[in-house]
Design a protein around this nucleic acid. Structure first.
Length: 506
RNA sequence: GGCCCGUUCGUCUAAGGGCUAGGACACCACCCUUUCACGGUGGUGAUACGGGUUCGAAUCCCGUACGGGCUACCA
């Protein structure tokens, strides 16, 4: 018996990957790494109607950005391929047929119209959505109600049909969920799910069981929305591969938005990203913003996701990926859903920006500045700028606003902040400051500040009244690091140039 | 409607029978700061409700309420 830990993330390529999806990846990844096992990605593209070009590539790009690279996948290779279900199509039919042969499944010839008619017919106040279950199947067109000959004839004629699981009556199916403990279902309330569709493709239910078996998955983790279909999967394991080969299950709590399961719409409505990275719908051209482009660091993104439903029992909140791998345990994953709080998410990112070295930030920030039209030629200068402003940036994109004046003189000055209190004496002070600074032998923040205050004292002016105007001259607005630090970094020529220019405006 | 899961400050959570229910985000106040932030100190604020079990319950059991998920030839 193989005891190696093997887990999988099995997305269907239908669009952007959202928070919950990435967290599922994360917990899978952490569990695999914590136990020295394998993490693989299997593309569940059995629904050809929902196929979206580019979505698969997007998923892998996202995993790469997050630093959660699979050990096996379509892109990474591996010994258990193919890793795309559409390419495994042929293998599913035989399992479905085997189930029919063993009496655990049956052919159903009902057309979509007939199914719709059935739902209309049996719909009542008490039962608004009738299911194709043990009580209904005897009234439908399938190999259970048709004679053997009729069934054979229809099959031979190539009539479109599906294969449905025949759920037993009055049985209790139970299993132990690693997060929730024992969960059980009365099979009489479970419907006869379609296993193999009319186009020959399996549904999720068949595919997940067959593939988890074939790929030797030891632990199957997924979102809580799958809990209701667990009995179908358990039964399939029992009928097909024996229960003692079945992986251990865990159903993660949902990540909730302001109203229920977090959706793409929530993001648009409440102004925060839901997808990991930008996603453009190829059909509509609609762009949905991602955490990456919003200015989140991958380390912070992983960190905040990990803590949404898990903690290590201490008061630590900032974790590196390595620490998470070291400390993660499925037993400490919460069972209740967690409402996503964007403010806290930003706090995580801020903490990470403060924590990270300038060298880790430089590339991203440099790119961002260049993209915004600033000329960044001097690496050393950029490093100093980042060091000076990083503590006041919550998002990576904040660096642009917080440091723009280091690369380009402000075009508009916040004159209103200065003008009402501006007077002749201040004008003269800055004229003298220019002369002083021009002659100054050293150009460091400390000297600059001392000289500034000396001149103010000599002229009987309060430094406080002068520093704001000085800031406006250099920065353009009421923000930024210490004004003398700015002047030091800007250099003598540029500082004086900005004072001179401002004096003509004030 | 049925089935399943869940319920500790506004939000994320700690406390897995025993101290004034702890921390973080957010919010408020003060300090620091001659800008804005960072930072520091303090504050507001929770065990859904009702029954049990127990010397003792946020914790175990039952019920109710509320929330969420599922109820497709989608995943």
């Amino acid at each position: 018996m193989s005891t190696r830990v093997r887990v999988r993330f099995a997305p269907s390529p239908t669009g952007g990957l959202h928070l919950g999806g990435v967290r599922t990846v994360l917990y899978n990844y952490l569990f695999a790494k914590t136990h020295g096992g394998d993490f693989l990605v299997r593309i569940e593209d059995t629904d050809q109607n929902r196929y979206v070009p580019g979505a698969e590539e997007y998923i892998f790009n996202t995993l790469k950005w997050c630093g959660l690279e699979p050990d096996e996948s379509v892109q990474h290779g591996g010994a258990y391929g193919p890793y795309r279900q559409s390419e495994r199509k042929e293998s599913y039919r035989q399992y479905a047929e085997q189930l029919v042969k063993d009496g655990y499944a049956y052919y159903a010839f009902d057309t979509p119209e007939e199914l719709e008619k059935m739902r209309q017919e049996f719909r009542t106040e008490q039962n608004p959505s009738p299911q194709y279950d043990h009580s209904i199947r005897i009234k439908m067109r399938n190999s259970l109600t048709l004679s053997t000959n009729d069934t054979k004839r229809l099959l031979d004629e190539g009539v479109k049909h599906v294969i449905r699981i025949k759920i037993p009556e009055n049985e209790t199916v139970s299993f132990t969920d690693m997060i929730r403990g024992e969960v059980s279902f009365d099979t009489s309330t479970v419907d006869d799910k379609v296993l193999l569709k009319a186009d020959g493709m399996p549904t999720y239910h068949l595919a997940v069981v067959v593939d988890d078996y074939l790929m030797k998955i030891s632990h199957a983790f997924r979102g809580e929305e799958w809990l209701p279909s667990a009995p179908v999967h358990i039964l399939l394991w029992k009928y097909l591969f024996r229960l003692d080969n079945m992986p251990q299950w865990a159903h993660f709590p949902l990540i909730l938005g302001p109203n229920g399961k977090l959706s793409k719409r929530d993001g648009a409505k409440y102004g925060f990203p839901v997808f990991a990275m930008n996603w453009t719908d190829p059909k509509t051209g609609e762009l949905t913003e991602g955490f990456k482009e919003k200015g989140f660091l991958p380390d912070a993104f992983i960190n905040l996701l990990a803590l949404l439903g898990w903690n290590d029992g201490t008061e630590q909140e900032i974790f590196t990926k390595e620490e998470l791998v070291e400390k993660f345990s499925m037993e400490r994953v919460h069972s209740a859903g967690a409402k996503f709080d964007y403010e806290k998410a930003k706090w995580f990112n801020h903490e990470w920006i403060k924590k990270l070295e300038v060298s880790s930030l430089r590339f991203e920030v440099g790119e961002l500045l260049k993209k915004s039209g600033f000329i960044v030629s001097n690496e050393d200068y950029l490093n100093k700028v980042i060091q000076l402003v990083k503590d006041r940036c919550t998002l990576l994109t904040d660096f642009v606003q917080q440091s723009s004046f280091f690369f380009k003189a402000p075009e508009v000055l916040d004159i209103d902040a200065v003008k009402p209190k501006w007077n002749e004496a201040k004008q003269l002070f800055f004229a003298e400051l220019i002369r002083n600074y021009e002659l100054s032998a050293s150009w460091d923040a400390h000297t600059l500040e001392n000289n500034f205050k000396e001149i103010a004292a000599v002229n009987d002016l309060k430094p406080g009244e002068l520093m704001l105007p000085f800031r406006i001259m250099l920065v353009g607005g009421k923000f930024g690091p210490g004004v003398f630090d700015i002047a030091e970094l800007l250099g003598k020529d540029e500082t004086i140039r900005r004072i001179q220019k401002a004096l003509t405006i004030f």
